[in-house]
């Protein structure tokens, strides 16, 4: 069965390469065009309220989350259905992460962290649909996520611990002479957190999608030999599926780590 599929795919690729090759003879690779923000209903001007492809794919993410978590669990089965199993799995996964990484008292932040995770993971996977728009590939989006996390955690820290929260930067276990230097490093690393969160997520997703597009451009230019880049795309796509989940996981677990700092600032 797999072998048959392989030959059919190969034949399709060869035929399509022969038929369509002349039109795309030039090497026309525009890997970044897929990230362009466009107004949905025409017009070049993109105001803050204009419904754009960002809006469309974010709303699709909301829809997917609704279908998975709300409709999936609608039966409330003691023995879960498939969708309900996934919903329970996601719930248990994030709940346990919050509890284990950030501590038991962090459980009240669980809905916020679940929101973050579900948005990122859903947007990443929706972005893997061919011809789709990946909202998490934009620094504006991941930057807002990172800044929201950063601000929320800083405020939480100061509300819970007041000035003592600054003890996070004062490494009391180090020799006294080293402490100011360490404090400087700690402060810098604290403020780099949102930047790294933002760039890690958007950078990974953007790079992966751009590479896929570059291979696709090769496939268009190589004619009959295009099966090579298409196989490369298949392999890379599998990697991107992994990255889509791992980046959401990394973003969430780092949020939990930072939240733990805010709840228990002592070293």
């Amino acid at each position: 069965m797999g072998k048959l599929f392989f030959y059919v795919a190969l034949a399709l690729v060869l035929v399509s390469g022969l038929v369509f090759a002349p039109e795309h003879a030039g090497l026309a690779i525009h890997p970044m065009d897929q990230f362009t923000v466009k107004a949905l209903f025409g017009g070049d001007h993109v105001a803050w309220y204009t419904p754009t492809n960002v809006t469309l794919w974010m709303f699709l993410a909301i829809g997917a989350i609704f279908v998975l978590l709300v409709m999936g669990s609608a039966n409330r089965g003691i023995v879960p259905s498939r969708a309900q199993s996934i919903a329970e799995l996601a719930y248990g996964f994030i709940y346990k992460m919050v509890e284990d990484v950030a501590g038991k008292d962090a459980v009240k932040f669980f809905p916020y962290i679940m929101t973050l995770f579900m948005f990122i993971v859903t947007a990443n996977f929706l972005g893997l649909i061919p011809m789709s728009f990946t909202t998490t590939s934009h620094f504006a989006v991941t930057g807002v996520l990172a800044v929201v996390v950063f601000v929320a955690i800083t405020i939480t820290g100061f509300v819970l611990h007041g000035v003592k929260f600054l003890g996070l930067f004062w490494v009391s276990s180090a020799p006294l002479a080293l402490r100011p230097i360490l404090a400087l490093i700690e402060v810098i690393s604290y403020f780099v957190r949102p930047v790294s969160l933002c760039i890690r997520l958007a950078g990974n997703i953007m790079a992966g999608h751009a590479v896929l597009k570059v291979f696709a451009g090769f496939a268009g230019a190589l004619g009959a030999a295009s099966f090579l880049p298409i196989f490369a795309i298949s392999a890379f796509y599998a990697l991107e599926v992994l990255v889509a989940f791992i980046q959401a996981y990394v973003f969430t677990i780092l949020t939990c780590v930072y939240l733990k700092d805010a709840l228990h600032p002592s070293h």
Partner: peptide
């Protein structure tokens, strides 16, 4: 635009 729709979505 992106920030507005992101906040709405979140």
């Amino acid at each position: 635009n992106q920030i507005w729709w992101l906040l709405v979505t979140l």
